[in-house]
Structure formats: structure tokens, C-alpha cells
């Protein structure tokens, strides 16, 4: 589904991603963790080309991102993304936030899109908030709206960029529960997160990154029980 082949990424002279090789299969849930500045956000933002890669090959769902002829909007319609800061559109109601892209990009009819929007809101368990504005919702509710918005295009892949880092502790679980539901349904997910409980429960694979390199990769059991690298051990000690 997502194939990184020797991907490099520079910000000016700063080498943000170094020789990344990664293969995410359909239906797989991959959790990326690592200290801040390790390049995990950059990695996930490369997948829908919010960041352009400088070297190597990146093939997402059959689209080659290194090819300038790739229609990036077509690809992005198949990838949902959830941000740390929610990034909801403050001037639109919750339902409009969700239905905008289906109506404008997929040319869906308004009634149809709204039905879809309500269905998705039910899925994230906040159907009753559909006609409120983002500013009236709590952080956890806003993030669930953002997930519903990501799902509105019926994506094949969902990307989560630290979805719980900006939330109060008591709201984290409500967002994680929605994400767990999604994982059980077989969605392909790439999640940048420090929620190790979540990772242990639903991840098929965990990837640990530092200074732009993938340092450790493996199943949760392997990752938590016998990590090989010293840096992984130090990180786990700090976070657990």
C-alpha cells in the first residue's frame, strides 16, 4: 500500500529523513514513535505530499510520488489525515466541515453528503453536535470531528499526526476508542503517537525513529519485551 524506498528529505542543509525503507501493507496499523525532532511527522507528511521528498522513491496506492505527473489531488482524496491541532474550519458547522470535500471534490449531492456526514458522526459518537461550530466543542470532540472529516472521502489510508498530544488526559481515551474501532474494521493506518497502550493493543508494527533514521521495527511484543537498540531502551524507560 505504502512503499518507501531509500527516501531522503532535506530542509535546506538539515537532513530530516535518512534512507527510509518501509513497506506498509493493506489493513496494517503502523505506529511511529520517537523523540521530538526525530522526523516522524515529516515521514507521515511525505505520504500525502504535504512535504516533497528529495530522493528515493515513494509509492502510495500505486501512485509514484516522485513523478511530477502524478495527480496529487486524486491521491489525497484517497488518504485521510488527522492533525495534532485538529485544523477544523472555524467558520463552518461540524457537518459542513465534513461534507465540504465530498461535495467539492467528489461532486457528491448535498443530501447524500449530509447523510454520509451524519453516519460518520454517529460512528465517532457525536451525532448530536452536528450543527454546532468547532469553537463550541471540547478538544476531544473536535478531534473526533477531524477523524470523521478524514473518513468522509472514504479513504483507503488514514494518517494520524500526534492526534492526542494536544488533548487533556481525560479526553484522550474517547479519541483512541474511535481509532481502535477503525483499526478493527481493517483500515490501513499510519499513526504518529506516544500512546504506548494504544500501540500495544492495536498496532501490527511499531517503528522507532531518531535523528531521521528508523532505528527499530517490529511487532509490539518484540518492541516492548526485547528492544535491541540502546536508544529505544532509553526512550521506553522514559515514556513507560
Amino acid at each position: 500500500m505504502i512503499i518507501f524506498k531509500k527516501v531522503d528529505k532535506y530542509y535546506g542543509s538539515f537532513h530530516a529523513l535518512k534512507d527510509i525503507n518501509l513497506h506498509v501493507k493493506q489493513g496494517e496499523v503502523v505506529v511511529i514513535c520517537g523523540p521530538s525532532g526525530s522526523g516522524k511527522s515529516t515521514l507521515i507528511r511525505c505520504i500525502n505530499e504535504l512535504e516533497l521528498i528529495n530522493g528515493g522513491e515513494l509509492i502510495v496506492d500505486g501512485y509514484n510520488l516522485a513523478d511530477p505527473r502524478t495527480n496529487i489531488n486524486e491521491l489525497r482524496a484517497e488518504i485521510g489525515m488527522v492533525f495534532q491541532q485538529f485544523n477544523l474550519y472555524p467558520h463552518m458547522s461540524v457537518l459542513k466541515n465534513i461534507t465540504l470535500a465530498p461535495i467539492k471534490v467528489k461532486k457528491m449531492k448535498k443530501a447524500e453528503a449530509e447523510a454520509l456526514g451524519l453516519e460518520l458522526l454517529e460512528k465517532v459518537r457525536i451525532k448530536e453536535q452536528a450543527y454546532k461550530y468547532p469553537a463550541e466543542l471540547s478538544g476531544g470532540q473536535q478531534q473526533r470531528v477531524a477523524i470523521a472529516r478524514g473518513l468522509a472521502m472514504r479513504p483507503k489510508i488514514m494518517l494520524f499526526d500526534e492526534p492526542t498530544s494536544a488533548l487533556d488526559p481525560e479526553m484522550i481515551s474517547e479519541v483512541l476508542n474511535v481509532m481502535k474501532d477503525l483499526a478493527r474494521e481493517g483500515m490501513t493506518m499510519v499513526v504518529v503517537s506516544h500512546e504506548m497502550g494504544f500501540a500495544r493493543e492495536v498496532a501490527d508494527r511499531i517503528i522507532f525513529m531518531d535523528v531521521g533514521l528508523i532505528i527499530e521495527r517490529g511487532t509490539p511484543e518484540h518492541f516492548f519485551t526485547n528492544p535491541k537498540d540502546e536508544r529505544t531502551k532509553a526512550f521506553l524507560n522514559e515514556i513507560l
Binding site: 489531488n73 489525515m81 472555524p90 470535500a101
Partner: peptide, 24 residues
């Protein structure tokens, strides 16, 4: 983030400008 969010849901730059950025 508004531009990134709208671009990642598949809107084009122009669409994002008209529906998301300019109204705000």
C-alpha cells in the same frame, strides 16, 4: 494548518482558497 487540512482532503489550491482560506 487550514491549508494543509483542506489540501489533504483533496481540495485543489484554488478550491481551498475560495472555500476555506478567503472566508476566514
Amino acid at each position: 494548518g487550514q491549508m494543509e487540512a483542506s489540501r489533504s482532503s483533496g481540495l485543489t489550491h484554488t478550491q481551498a482558497m475560495i472555500y476555506i482560506i478567503l472566508p476566514q
